[in-house]
Write a protein that binds this DNA or RNA. Structure first.
Lengths: 192, 192
DNA sequence: AAAATCATGTAATCGGTTACATGATTAT
DNA sequence: ATAATCATGTAACCGATTACATGATTTT
């Protein structure tokens, strides 16, 4: 159960409410964890109850009030001991790849459409990541940043997100090209 | 619930028992789905009951008997209509990336060790994929294969698995380099 | 006035993991 | 004999999603 550690890690970057976490969680941990409000709210309450986070009710006058959570010293300690433990293997679930495997030969049109849809999603994600990267670097190049920044963890995670989406895009284009060349071959077949 | 479609897709490559699926599932769908025996056995029984797969008890004399499942016409039809439906977004969960984010600055030694461990895992996976690729190509180059092969879906999925692991390895080495250069900077700091 | 967004939660259900149970066969 | 591998399942639990409920505030 690493949801709590994902949350505590996100809180290292600054206090946040459940709503804020729910909205930016994926972007914040750059593609490597995900959680919905229905999971976040009770877990935040638990972290508060166990003293790993501390909640403060914040009044706002242009929107409804919110409950902001901050990581505590106990939370930091919990994170530190968790970091040294072995990681479970990465788990990926991607219905699109499954559909490519099963439908590339039987329904290439539907697959091509699905690929283009996913392409748009990936490009949008990449744009978001690149914006975050620019913001973090603040004019410095990467080498400079890695030398001078107070924390590099979030940047390294972001690099992973960028690399993952780039790889994804390349694969999509590769598959699309394969489908296109097959379509031509089917329309003008060269029988033995 | 795409487990059943993942199973049906795997069965397109040939009949299999629950045990065989459990053992080769990850490799077969090349990194994009995963399931344990406790999930596979009941789901296979359900597919059988619903007529999407058909089971046959096969007697073996050098090992215990097994129950082999084959996809049926109804199963193929179910797959075909599923392929045209929209895919849920890819979901990745990777504790290692989370640990890098939270521990790169506070515990670089533990992170470096974890990275090297994952590196070995990734290299082993890549080796397995490359072997499968060679087997599929059977001497042909990719262009030739894509023209002449009866089915290309499994190959395209495999390409995705290879690309994912390559990207992962590059990211690991990138992070390792960043940690190393930081270690040097810490041992020989250049204060203002 | 209606729709969208901000904000927090609960309940029911579903999917996935862990632990357990059993037994055949093969290798050491 | 013992351990490893082959083979199939069940039960309990945990984690995640979906649906529901409520209400403030802002925008159209």
């Amino acid at each position: 159960m690493s949801l709590r550690h994902a949350i505590l890690t996100a809180l290292l970057d600054g206090d946040a409410s459940g709503y804020e976490l729910a909205k930016h969680f994926d972007l914040s941990v750059a593609n490597f964890w995900h959680a919905l409000p229905a999971q976040l709210y009770p877990e935040l309450a638990r972290l508060d109850a166990e003293g790993l986070a501390q909640s403060t009710d914040v009044a706002q006058d242009r929107r409804p009030n919110k409950r902001v959570y901050a990581i505590t010293d106990a939370g930091r300690a919990e994170l530190r001991q968790w970091v040294a433990k072995p990681s479970k293997p990465m788990s990926v679930k991607d219905e699109l790849v499954l559909r490519v495997r099963s439908g590339a030969d039987s329904d290439p049109e539907a697959i091509a459409e699905a690929l283009q849809h996913r392409r748009h999603v990936s490009v949008a994600k990449l744009d978001g990541y690149r914006a975050m990267q620019k913001q973090m670097l603040r004019g410095r190049n990467e080498e400079e940043f890695l030398r001078s920044a107070r924390r590099i963890g979030p940047y390294l995670t972001l690099l992973g997100g960028i690399a993952l989406e780039q790889e994804h895009l390349q694969w999509i284009d590769h598959v699309q090209a394969a489908l296109d060349s097959r379509r031509q071959a089917r329309h003008a077949p060269t029988p033995a």
